[in-house]
Computed example of a mutant assay.
Amino acid sequence: MTDAPGRPEWASARALRADKGHETRSLLLDAAARVFTRLGYARTTIADITAEAEVSRPTFYAYFETKADVFREVAARVRDEFLAGHEIPDVDVNDPYALGRASAEAFLAAHAANHELLTVIEHQAITDERIREIWQEITRRPTRRVARYVERLAKAGKADPAATPAVVAEAITGIFARFARQVPADREGFERLVDELTAIYLRILGVDRASG
């Protein structure tokens, strides 16, 4: 007997359990992120996480072995959110203004959403090698991507950067990181900051918006 063409009941049941397992795992990661943000790494306990998620300790251990294990996954999710800011769909990569503004908005939004958690990740990176690798990806990969983009624009004659691509990339990501620590809470202020940082970005790249 099947519940759909070509799918036996046991297969549907297994798929349902997998979906439920994914939901529970996500629930635990969301709860852990909130607790780590609120308490920091050292003060957080597995009991805090299970209480926040409203699940039992055995449920936690069904998905994660230790507090360090779940923290690494939380940190990896933050990393992925930041890197996604440089892979924006439906934006013309040949338009420096459109790509720069979209990237600025995504970066600032990700930083605003994870500001306190980023501090916890940075601190834990001092003693945990795997967290240090994740932290370096958060901080270095975007810079390398910007450098490659600046180099490509310069070679195509679409930009006249103020310095070498590597230095320009360091300057741009440094400026964005500085202002990301104080992102305005109101939408109007946020949009204004995005516009101002995009203007700075274009100036450092040596791109004329009117001709870009």
Results as ranks from 00 to 15, higher is better:
17 R>A: 15
40 G>W: 00
178 R>E: 11
189 G>Q: 09
138 I>Q: 01
24 T>K: 02
84 A>S: 10
111 H>K: 08
123 H>L: 15
26 S>D: 12
120 V>E: 00
64 F>I: 04
149 Y>K: 02
205 L>E: 03
103 S>M: 14
149 Y>R: 05
5 P>Y: 12
94 N>G: 15
157 G>N: 11
118 L>H: 03
205 L>S: 01
193 L>Q: 09
29 L>I: 15
196 E>I: 11
161 P>H: 00
61 Y>W: 09
9 E>K: 15
130 R>D: 13
63 Y>T: 10
58 P>C: 05
176 F>Q: 08
10 W>L: 06
22 H>T: 14
79 R>T: 07
139 T>V: 13
54 E>Q: 11
80 D>L: 03
83 L>I: 14
141 R>S: 05
201 Y>N: 14
178 R>G: 04
164 T>I: 05
29 L>Y: 08
98 A>H: 11
157 G>V: 07
36 F>V: 10
172 I>D: 01
162 A>T: 07
73 E>V: 13
50 T>F: 02
111 H>C: 03
207 V>L: 12
42 A>Q: 13
120 V>L: 06
29 L>V: 15
125 A>V: 03
70 V>A: 02
123 H>E: 13
31 A>T: 09
21 G>S: 12
209 R>I: 10
104 A>E: 06
176 F>E: 10
141 R>C: 02
2 T>S: 15
32 A>H: 02
86 H>N: 12
210 A>M: 14
87 E>M: 10
194 V>P: 02
